[in-house]
Write a protein that binds this DNA or RNA. Structure first.
Lengths: 336, 336
DNA sequence: TGTTTTATCGAAAACGATTTCACAATTAAT
DNA sequence: ATTAATTGTGAAATCGTTTTCGATAAAACA
């Protein structure tokens, strides 16, 4: 199989490669007759331009790097769908990486992307990420990087988040209103911004009430499921157990459901539960789970729109340092 | 910002670019002293090789294209995690595309990938895909392509599937054994292989029993949720409703659960249900849902292992035409 | 008729890394 | 002491496109 490239087409047509290239790109300098000849042969031989030669020449890869901390998660899957929906219209490709909530992995991935493999990066940082040197590096290299959901607050760039503080406040307030006296907050990591913001909302709501809040209502959970099950059971069995739980991430709420099932406590009679989650089937759980769901696809679309507008402009304006908030929606179901 | 490339390093070091390149690649032809000088400057200036220049030269992209029909789906997410786990060890990157169960999209994606953007493709075809010309094209171009789960049967390549026939048979048999007299089979599309195989297993189990099977037990569903809800309700309300349902894909089982909820029928007393699904939380549904779950990550790993072994060999042997079966696991829960 | 536009195309450089070939300089062999 | 082999490096070609810079011929103008 001889690979069909521009030079090959040029030979066949008895023309210069430059002419063929221009014809393929519909340049005004080329006569219609020549264009027709080139295009027809190109189609006949099924010519496909080499993207790497192009990228090398143009210093553009038409590729976006996407880094998420977890792939088996509806929220992130929806965000990527949203990103793809837009980028695909502009002929951009998506290189997707999973950091598995691991900073080291995240650093490695970033280093892969530093050589110009992608034109921009959109990411949600791992729950371990506290230092952001590796992310600053990206900016220094001149590669646009934007964040969503779990953001690197200090980096001067655009970040898309939901109204985490407000949602945390509202959810806690709701639990208080329906009679909870002791509301635990499940936290995956102190590092990530969303955790902090949701916690802040919860704290303010609790403190604004006349509940006797204590520091140990905030539960610092592990990444893995096993230790969390044990942890949850340890506070569910005693007499002074909580009567409400607000989970800052879906994963922990699922584990809590499982732990509660084992204790024979009833939801919502004995204990009420609300979680941040983009699960599709919260309705079908036993009992249906109250959730705060994020506009994931829209977040993805907004990220992509911003990047596309920046990247396709000939005069590349820098990405503003701003935080854009897209509100979440609270779905009250039986669990609360 | 001056971009630091090999030529720039060479100038700084007063050496030829070729020497620098060789030093960076740890060539035996270069003295240790020179290597040290080059490496230290490269590190100092944070040199990153340009992947596109490399790819152009080497005719290799170190990139794998992954095409799935649905992103918000645990099965496919797990498969990709499995693929990434392996490919990442070899320094390969993943370009991920969602065909949204649409052949046209699928064709478009394939055409993007034809120009040598990826070294290989691993995919699961859309439920609409009946003709496979576009997939043959890929092979003609010399790009290895392998399939998993939803395979293109006629293409001579390696395909990874689960024991769909057997699982279909076993699930149907199980429903018969626990007393079902009228078992409907939910089919997403006649086109896809897994649907056909699972259906075949179901049919054989039903025909081996003394149930009075009728063609209309096989329900051809739509892609969207709305019409399916109506469709399901239309056969759930009448007196001659089924007392068992076997769903060939998760999505349809979820919709069925919702429809059943609206009819006030009880699961499993009035109607029993089993589905193919990789849902993590089948346990937490109301009632817990019996599933046949596929070893998704392992499928992904096996796909990637095969490709890596083929691609990293200097003497590239062709990919065999074979079907590799990795068995699913049946999880009996309350719904059956 | 002579000069300037305009239309159409080709030659060659460039993108950044790798590799083939060649060539010194040094060391080993005869 | 002369030749052969070895070691370390540089020059230049290459991968496939795009683009700059000309070049030619035809058309338009004076």
């Amino acid at each position: 199989m001889t690979k069909v490239n521009i030079k090959y087409l040029a030979e066949k047509l008895n023309m210069a490669p430059s002419t063929v290239s221009r014809a393929l790109n519909d340049s005004y300098e080329i006569s219609q007759k020549t264009k027709d000849k080139v295009l027809s042969l190109a189609k006949e031989l099924n010519y496909q331009p080499n993207p790497y030669a192009r990228s090398l020449r143009a210093h553009k890869s038409k590729t976006i790097g996407v880094i998420i901390p977890e792939r088996i998660n509806n929220f992130f899957a929806q965000v990527i769908d949203g990103i793809e929906e837009i980028t695909q219209q502009y002929g951009y490709h998506l290189l997707v990486y999973n950091s598995h909530e691991d900073v080291e992995q995240e650093r490695k991935i970033i280093s892969y992307l530093l050589g110009g493999r992608v034109d921009a990066i959109v990411m949600s940082v791992s729950s371990q990420t506290s230092s952001t040197e590796h992310l600053e590096q990206v900016q220094k290299q001149g590669i646009p990087i934007i964040f969503f959901d779990r953001i690197a607050q200090d980096l001067p760039t655009t970040k898309f988040i939901t109204n985490d503080y407000q949602s945390g406040f509202d959810a806690a307030h709701h639990l208080i209103e329906i009679g909870c006296k002791k509301i635990y907050f499940l936290l995956l990591s102190k590092e990530i911004t969303i955790g902090k913001e949701r916690l802040r909302g919860y704290l303010d709501a609790v403190k604004a009430s006349d509940l006797s809040f204590s520091e140990d209502w905030v539960i610092h959970c592990a990444q893995e499921e096993k230790p969390n099950i044990d942890l949850f059971k340890s506070f569910l069995f005693p007499m002074d157990r909580p009567d409400g739980i607000l989970s800052s991430v879906e994963k922990l709420a699922i584990t809590a459901y499982q732990a509660i099932k084992e204790t024979k406590l009833r939801i919502p009679e004995d204990i009420k539960l609300i979680t941040f989650s983009n699960m599709k089937i919260a309705d079908l759980l036993d009992p249906p789970l109250s959730t705060i769901s994020q506009p994931a696809q829209e977040i993805g679309r907004e990220c992509a729109k911003l990047l596309m507008s920046k990247l396709t402009k000939t005069k590349p304006s820098p990405i503003e340092d701003q935080v854009i908030t897209i509100p979440s929606i609270f779905h009250k179901r039986t669990s609360s």
